[in-house]
Design a protein around this nucleic acid. Structure first.
Lengths: 211, 211
DNA sequence: CCTACCGATCGGTAGG
DNA sequence: CCTACCGATCGGTAGG
């Protein structure tokens, strides 16, 4: 049933994946608009038109860059958290993985999504919508774990879940910025501590150890 | 003693200021690299070379855009806080003014400095250095007010000033992002509440009213 | 996957 | 402040 074309000509092709892996790294530093087809081709020792043929338009290339970035984010941050029980422990695993993904420099420009969500925050169109949905999904994932934690009586029942999720994500954005801009590695432990303190302020069972 | 040339040909000229006022608005949306001399000239009904002559290079134009953005930031956020007494009250005024500067859309793309500090976080060169210094100054201003508050016994003596400053700035960045991306006006009051809660957690004299 | 192109736009210059 | 221009690069196409 599986179609060879699906795995060979497009998503499975080495060239196709090599292009996107290079492109996502450039985009994490320069933004999605900073990826030019000519530069990408010359860095990969390909002709411009040969590269272009894989995508059909620059916007399609940019859209695929977002897809592969989401895939990498999933592998590096989300999947490893799934071994932890839902609620507080999984939430903490998500955030700890996220900070570790900065430290390990999974993308050379820090968090790909922090870069492009600021780049597209005042723009319109498909790319804005696509990035906006990924960021909403991330925020909802955090809210969801907080709600589970509340249901399980891990955190106090009048904890403001939306406010907490906003604060946690904001600290992530701040840490990404300081880590990249000033090459300040200590900010990562600082951010972990900030997030833990926010959670500890609403934790009921003080025996829960997250760090 | 004052030189007419200083106020007429360059910094005082209407054209020069008009160019920069337009350019800073574009940059707040598109980033500093998204400002092109040709587009800027056509939007202002000028010739490219006529506009170019004011600056000498694109990098000089970008540098002057940063200067005028800092000047506007100073007028809108920093100066109005100076009527409040140093320490907690001035700090709160700074942050309240900052959020209000988002709400009033002083720049159409939200906070100019949030945009360009992410744009330049992994780049090198004069523009990176210049933006980095302005952001450090802002962070140090917050740290300074917190230290004054500690000296005045407004906040507890083992409050972690650097952590608190990091958290406050991060919440600002998060609010700017959500406000711009999702056109979510409520996030501004949410951010005010988050900052107040962070401060209230370390305030000694609970009679201090900030909001 | 390539060579060879296209029109548009980029930053910048010469000369007035 | 302008017209007229420069080489380089942009996204994209024709044809193989």
């Amino acid at each position: 049933m599986s179609n060879i074309k699906d795995t060979k000509t497009q998503k499975g092709s080495n060239t196709y994946n090599m292009i996107l892996r290079k492109a996502v790294d450039i985009a994490s530093i320069e933004g999605l608009n900073g990826v030019s087809i000519g530069r990408l081709a010359s860095e990969l020792n390909m002709s411009k038109s040969g590269l272009f043929a894989h995508f059909g338009s620059k916007e399609q290339l940019q859209s695929k860059i977002i897809d592969i970035a989401a895939q990498i984010f999933n592998e590096e941050v989300i999947k490893p958290a799934e071994s932890h029980q839902m609620g507080l422990h999984r939430l903490w695993s998500l955030m700890d993985n996220w900070i570790s993904y900065l430290e390990r420099k999974v993308f050379p420009g820090g968090c790909f999504f922090s870069t492009v969500t600021i780049e597209y925050d005042c723009k319109k169109g498909e790319l804005h919508e696509k990035i906006g949905k990924i960021m909403s999904d991330w925020r909802n994932r955090i809210i969801n774990e907080l709600n589970t934690a509340k249901g399980n009586k891990q955190i106090i029942k009048d904890a403001d879940i939306y406010k907490l999720a906003f604060e946690i994500i904001s600290i992530g954005m701040g840490a990404n910025w300081i880590f990249n801009y000033y090459n300040d590695k200590e900010i990562c432990m600082q951010a972990r501590k900030s997030i833990l303190d926010l959670l500890n302020a609403v934790i009921i069972d003080k025996s829960i150890k997250l760090s």
